[in-house]
Write a protein that binds this DNA or RNA. Structure first.
Lengths: 156, 156
DNA sequence: TTGTAACTCTGCATATTTTGCAGAAAAAGG
DNA sequence: CCTTTTTCTGCAAAATATGCAGAGTTACAA
């Protein structure tokens, strides 16, 4: 029998919500807030983690940790058939924090964190040598106003 | 005497690195991996959290949780003096997961998560009515290849 | 060099949390 | 109505976190 892997109930959402606020919140505290037993909180959370609905990660502040060049690179691919291999190649680079294909003018959009402008220039050069990369356009992020989790209340 | 809030040593980096892999790793396990006492691991990590060098958050998978429209909106502001108030206004919206000003053609770049294309259209309309928002350009993220933390080894 | 003040680290006892498990309750399916 | 499966609960044992006091370290000035 197939198990349902997609439907989340109110308890699940409440757990996710707790963890968005504090990823280290204990099972005990989650259980208290939701008025369920510790075992329930644990089972639910472990399932959510296992299914990849949520992942709990330490997110460093790029500035404070020493990344002085946070930038966005838009990439044109020609011929278009090379998109997948190029995406794989770029995905493997440690500087890359985000990579997606879009509906826009460019084929791939990348966010990168580099130590310095020099490092960023080197990285863009590196990208440019990948077969299929036809053109790139780099934009620096000057000031980050918000970096948050989506509000789950929007889904109710 | 001012306290140093910026310099991180190897132990700090090692702790950050552990937490990038698993945000719920216990003090005990971190201490074991670094060959320091539990107290040290705890003191260090608490300081890093307090100073905002790292924050531990549950990151939900937008798809799995019900956000079917993940998009990017580039925004032109006229007159330019309205940039700050517009940024504040946009920042307060729950759909917004990322907001930054850039060196590029547009003044602000926003990432948003919406339940549906309808919801996204409504959101863009909402943004367009803000005073100072002159033009917007929306791009859908089709496929996300990578969503990761920056590799701290780059800083060594 | 020596002394002092400010941190940081360690280890231990206590409090809290997690884990594993077995049985109760609830839901699903004949 | 009775199985079967799943989920929940509570308990005891194991693991972990916390508070604290004392031992090192470091920085700095006399």
């Amino acid at each position: 029998m197939e198990k349902n892997h997609t439907l989340l109930d109110d308890t699940d959402f409440a757990i996710l919500s707790c963890l968005q606020k504090d990823g280290r919140m204990s099972f005990t505290e989650i259980a208290d807030q939701l008025n369920v037993s510790v075992g329930t909180a644990r089972t639910r959370l472990n399932r959510l983690l296992e299914e990849g609905v949520i992942s709990i990660v330490g997110r460093v502040d790029p500035e404070k940790v020493g990344f002085r060049a946070y930038a966005h690179i838009a990439i044109y691919i020609r011929p278009a058939t090379l998109k997948e291999p190029v995406a794989q190649e770029i995905s493997s680079k440690p500087e890359v924090s985000f990579l997606a294909s879009t509906s826009g003018d460019y084929d791939l959009e990348v966010d990168v964190m580099c130590q310095s402008n020099n490092h960023l220039v080197e990285f863009v050069n590196e990208i440019s040598t990948i077969e299929g990369v036809y053109q790139t356009k780099t934009t620096l992020y000057f000031k980050v106003y918000k970096y948050a989790q989506p509000d789950l209340n929007l889904l109710k």
